[in-house]
Design a protein around this nucleic acid. Structure first.
Lengths: 161, 161
DNA sequence: TAAATATTGACGAATACTGACCAAAGATAT
DNA sequence: ATATCTTTGGTCAGTATTCGTCAATATTTA
């Protein structure tokens, strides 16, 4: 897909670095990256915060001062149970439609879900939401709780199969 | 087939874009489309929700904010259309839990569903049933209707893509 | 005319980007 | 050793840009 925004370009650059490196971990220098993309340094923080967050399967460590660095680590899980409990934590008691979609997309990217499975889950979530809204007049808050509930049920059932 | 309504015009425009593009996927800018058709932006959402829903063979993905977009993906029939409409007939207006399970097992045996996909559908159906029973006190009759509805949505969206 | 579908507009939410100011850690001079 | 300078990264608040939702109203259809 075309990456027209600055954020996308930086994101793709970092992903490419990770891919080339292979060890699942890379180091950056914030100022250099900012110069490369001709933006303010805090833009790098924005990209890291929004695209390389734990819910997207990454960890970011850094150190200030001379020879400072930013390290991006790609998370992996040893077993299913670890992954499931991590997912439970991420979903929490309630979740928005956007968050749910991002999470599912991430699972698909990490090959933990097929495209068809993701589609099924999205349709199920959407159906519940529509029913809750139009048939039963459920509040948005309650719908977020029900969405988290269903999502956890679906993902858990898959992981334990 | 009156193409006179605004919704129809927008629908046809998007379909034409999809056809011209050929890749089965297009990107829109909601504000631009709204300006083109001289309507409020939310009209675009209405068209997308009502005409480009998964059960109609489309996926809509979007992103807000700077460089935001709306992407419409046309799912292509992999399995034949007859299969889908046959399933619709088979399910009918309402279906019991037992019948649903038999149907799903049958689809899995015929390799039209993976075990994981069947599991997802069963969990989604059961979840809706449970909620309907315990939260909203829905009658068994109404629940059979809702079950048929959800099952058709799920299978139809799967039959595409 | 009752139900379904279409249309609008007000308001809210998510994402992108910047710049000013803050904090930490190494380097250097005394 | 300590103070101070230099080099790094962090945070936050503000602005701009897009899209989404919801409820009210209008129109069409059955």
């Amino acid at each position: 897909m075309s990456a027209s925004s600055l954020t996308s370009k930086i994101e793709e650059y970092i992903e490419q670095l990770l891919e080339e490196n292979g060890s699942g971990m890379i180091s950056l220098r914030r100022k250099d990256l900012a110069e490369l993309f001709e933006c303010v340094p805090s833009q790098i923080n924005y990209v890291l915060r929004s695209k390389f967050a734990p819910e997207n399967g990454f960890l970011v460590e850094s150190q200030r001062g001379g020879h400072g660095y930013i390290r991006v680590v790609q998370l992996t899980f040893k077993n299913c149970e670890e992954e499931v409990s991590h997912l439970q934590d991420l979903i929490g008691n309630r979740i928005s439609e956007q968050e749910a979609k991002r999470l599912l997309m991430n699972l698909q990217n990490r090959k933990l879900l097929s495209a068809r499975e993701r589609l099924l889950i999205e349709v199920a979530l959407r159906n519940q939401d529509e029913n809750g809204r139009s048939l039963f007049d459920i509040s948005i808050h309650k719908r977020e709780i029900m969405r988290a509930d269903l999502l956890k049920k679906l993902l858990t059932s898959l992981a334990l199969s």
